[in-house]
Design a protein around this nucleic acid. Structure first.
Lengths: 173, 173
DNA sequence: TACATATCTGACACAGTGTCAGAAAACGAC
DNA sequence: GTCGTTTTCTGACACTGTGTCAGATATGTA
């Protein structure tokens, strides 16, 4: 508040409390991130390419909004109510990733394993990697982060042979 | 303090401040976790088996100490000094994982990619998966978490073919 | 100008963290 | 036991962050 022109009291006329401020920021960010992740979540076509595309969008949004993302994630550790909101946000991604993995398993594209713990772990991977890499200035460069996330997700889900194939294709074109 | 028999003031005779309390807890936990992770970090032999062993130990320790781990991780988001301590702790793992990946790349066991971002991402994966899975009661079961972390790390580093091979071996024996 | 509505502010209350002088307890010598 | 010394503990205070509220100020309108 010290850096703004209005008083602390005036703030409470626009937001019920700090929790609600963070909640609205989270909702805005969630919308952007879901939109970016949509290709892999709901798209049709080569799932390896869709993974690449979704992670590219997700990394791009998080690179831009890094400090917001970090503030939101930090707030989740101090406010009991907001912790639930943050958990719901990540949980929605877990559900979506789970569904996609199950669908691809039925098509024989992904090996048969319990999807829930792997989806959970991969989502914590993405979330906390971008939070730590982009949350504080100076931020990491987005490209190496994107490449690492793509490599890990594709190796885990579709097989490591697709990682090198894809990168060599990209080099040739 | 309300749940203890001593006063708040007495606490400050044993610890300089809350930061120092968390720091000592972190140091204790770091020792346990480093010891558990040692096989893959510094061991010789089949790296796939060593990965499995290290993650088993790490998951076991974190399952037991989950609430402590979570408290420590949460403290890092509110205390500037402690944030640095936590960052150093994770950074030490990044360095160790980086070295191991580079060594295995020289031996041709791991594909040639930039090791730092992948090591960073895999460590955030492990850390925040166990924190969220084991940090709050009721805790998740450790076995599915371990299996997911093993699957992801082995697929990413040594190739996804080793995941199924290993699990089929384990079924037969 | 006068009234009504919208917006803002200072003062207060309460919780969390750290400090400090002095009280209480433990110990040792006689 | 009773001093004197050292260790340990406590209540009161100071400072910061969060939220509330009555009343002041600004804005719009007839």
């Amino acid at each position: 508040m010290a850096t703004t022109s209005i008083s602390r009291s005036a703030f409470y006329q626009y937001f019920e409390d700090i929790h609600q401020l963070m909640k609205e920021l989270l909702d805005m960010l969630a919308e952007e991130i879901f939109a970016a992740a949509k290709p892999w979540i709901a798209g049709v076509g080569d799932p390896v390419a869709l993974t690449h595309e979704s992670l590219e969008g997700m990394v791009h949004v998080c690179y831009q909004r890094g400090p917001f993302l970090r503030a939101i994630s930090d707030a989740a550790t101090t406010d009991d109510r907001f912790e639930q909101d943050w958990s719901d946000f990540l949980g929605a991604f877990d559900d979506a990733a789970c569904s996609r993995i199950e669908a691809d398993q039925k098509q024989g594209l992904i090996a048969r394993f319990e999807p829930r713990p792997v989806a959970f772990a991969l989502n914590r991977l993405d979330a906390h990697t971008v939070i730590e890499a982009f949350g504080k200035h100076p931020r990491s460069k987005p490209e190496p982060v994107h490449e690492a996330l793509v490599r890990i997700r594709i190796s885990t889900l579709y097989g490591s042979e697709w990682v090198e194939k894809r990168s060599s294709n990209l080099v040739r074109t």
